[in-house]
Simulated scan of single mutants.
Amino acid sequence: MTGMHSLWRRALAEALGTGLLVTVVVGSGIAAAKLSPGDIGLQLLENSFATALGLAVLILMLGPVSGAHFNPVVSAADWWLGQRDGSGLSLRELAAYVPAQISGAIAGAILANLMYGEAAVSWSTTDRTAGHLWIGETVATAGLIVLIFSLVWSGRAALAPAAVGAYIGAAYWFTSSTSFANPAVTIGRAFSDTFAGIAPSSVPGFVFFQVFGAILGAGLVVVLYPGLGSAADVVVPHTGTTESESTDSGVSS
């Protein structure tokens, strides 16, 4: 990996970014249900539009610090694909990123609940356990991994904020599962019994097929881009300091 911020600062950025992403997803879902009662299609449109825009903004805002993974399977793919040439996250960095993402996601759901006058934690009762939904999560996650790493490996990482936001916004509609595609976000959404929630009993199935989709996606990246290089600096290339330096990084997207 290129020059980096200290690990604690990058982990904080991952927690903050994942948390705010869940706040956007859950908060916009609550708002949509209140503003458009009885119209599920319009609610989904409002929720997906806010999520796509919010994700793009968060990538731009925090990508220069941590790479803006906001997703354990993206971080794991970054580590695994980086083994090809010694780039990507180290195991130590992966071990810091994933707990930060999960804890941030939970905090983000709680924040959204509180902003709308809901109980801080209200376990979702929305069952999402079905084979066609698992297929949807596999497709959504595989596509996300292919998109991110094809952009990075072909030198187009600067397009990631718009492209990833657009992909997630579209995948709300073309996948049966409405494209969670993120284990941390899935866990966080279980803490809110609102429009965007998922029952805790449905979480393991979604996470399993998200991991499976990430493996498929990483395999496709290797097949499609065999001669291209680094998996580092996902989602946004970030430059800056080593752990012993203190100057600010520059946004390179």
Rank of each mutant, 00 (worst) to 15 (best):
L60T: 09
S87E: 06
G88L: 11
L55T: 03
V65L: 14
L62C: 08
N71S: 10
V57W: 01
N47I: 01
W79C: 10
S48P: 05
D78P: 00
A77W: 01
G63W: 02
L55M: 12
L81T: 03
Q43L: 05
D78F: 01
L55P: 00
L58W: 04
M61S: 15
T51E: 04
S75E: 02
T51K: 04
F49L: 15
M61P: 00
T51H: 02
S66K: 09
E46S: 06
G63T: 03
L55S: 02
P72W: 04
L55V: 12
S75I: 08
V74Y: 02
F49N: 11
M61F: 10
A77D: 05
A52G: 15
A76S: 14
L45H: 12
D85M: 07
V74R: 05
P72Q: 09
N47A: 15
V65D: 00
D85S: 13
S66P: 08
A56L: 06
N71W: 02
N47T: 15
H69C: 01
A56E: 02
A68W: 07
V74M: 11
A56P: 07
S66G: 11
V57K: 00
N47M: 01
W79G: 05
L58S: 03
V65T: 15
A50G: 11
A77Q: 03
V74P: 05
F70N: 09
H69S: 10
A50F: 15
V73S: 04
V74W: 03
L81P: 07
P72K: 08
L53W: 13
V73W: 02
A50S: 14
L60K: 10
V57E: 00
I59P: 06
L55D: 02
W80E: 08
L89C: 12
L53R: 07
L89N: 08
F70P: 08
G82K: 04
G67D: 07
P64Y: 10
L58Y: 03
A52T: 08
A77Y: 01
G88D: 10
Q43A: 06
I59W: 05
